[in-house]
Design a protein around this nucleic acid. Structure first.
Length: 256
DNA sequence: ATGGTAGTCTAACTA
């Protein structure tokens, strides 16, 4: 079973790229973030025609998450009891017995800001939700745009992207560690990887051609899945396409 | 360089 995640930065703009990518990479599950699409305008037909089922939770202009899957998504959750939040950032579904939790984690703007406080509160509540989900399911994948670079290896310039900077701050990283301590493994780090492997490059100042990026898109797996993970990688190719998302897709395979 | 680019939607926000 291959499971992927991609922040597409507007599904309407990126739909042709998503469909092309799925033809070349016929994964079983694709978790999408930043659809920026309200549910009535969701491109349902095009995705069904591509042979995928789909569930989604969108809003106007910002955020929005979707899960595309070859098999039927069941027990879909868009809201959690811990958080009364109009922002569409969470989508959980069970696909072929695997609990898939798709997250578009809050960016947080800058350390110390109101948005940063919201990010930390959001993370705490989502982690509590995931703990409950994990007690109910053996095979769990938590994936998406985490807007957190786990450690120094995941930033192009650790001097610039230090522990006082958004996406890298101590409190963000310890929240991620707390999540992993529930029994999740960052599948990317289970394998030998090239140095300077990133999943996001700022549109500004030629980030991609200079490989000035961060690895903030993650696929975390519970022990039952991480033990059967055969690869986990970043596919940089769509980032080099014309009019790309600022994120590249990430893929992991589980031999189940 | 308190810049730069992209998306949503035409002003200003979010990233």
């Amino acid at each position: 079973m291959q499971i992927a995640s991609w922040n597409v930065n507007s599904l309407r703009v990126r739909l042709p790229q998503v469909l092309t990518w799925l033809e070349e990479n016929p994964v079983d599950v694709l978790a999408i973030q930043e659809t920026k699409t309200q549910d009535p305008g969701f491109p349902l037909e095009e995705i069904l025609d591509a042979g995928y089922r789909v569930v989604f939770s969108g809003q106007k202009t910002y955020n929005g998450v979707a899960i595309l899957a070859k098999q039927k998504p069941e027990d879909v959750i868009t809201d959690i009891p811990q958080l009364d939040d109009p922002q569409r950032r969470i989508l959980a579904a069970t696909i072929a017995g695997v609990r898939v939790i798709n997250l578009y984690v809050v960016n947080g703007s800058e350390v110390g800001s109101e948005k940063y406080a919201y990010k930390l509160d959001w993370l705490e509540k989502v982690i509590a939700f995931i703990e409950e989900e994990k007690s109910r399911h053996e095979q769990v994948v938590v994936l998406g745009d985490f807007n957190i670079a786990p450690d120094e290896r995941d930033v192009h310039d650790p001097e610039k992207w230090n522990e006082n900077v958004i996406l890298c701050s101590q409190l963000e990283r310890s929240a991620l560690e707390k999540l992993c301590a529930l029994g999740f493994s960052d599948t990317f780090r289970q394998f030998e990887q090239e140095e300077a492997s990133f999943s996001w490059w700022d549109y500004r100042s030629g980030g991609f051609p200079r490989n000035q990026g961060l690895r903030i898109d993650l696929i975390l797996a519970s022990a039952a899945l991480s033990s059967v993970c055969s690869f986990s990688r970043i596919d940089k190719t769509p980032r080099a396409w014309e009019r790309p998302s600022d994120h590249a897709p990430v893929i992991a395979e589980f031999k189940i």
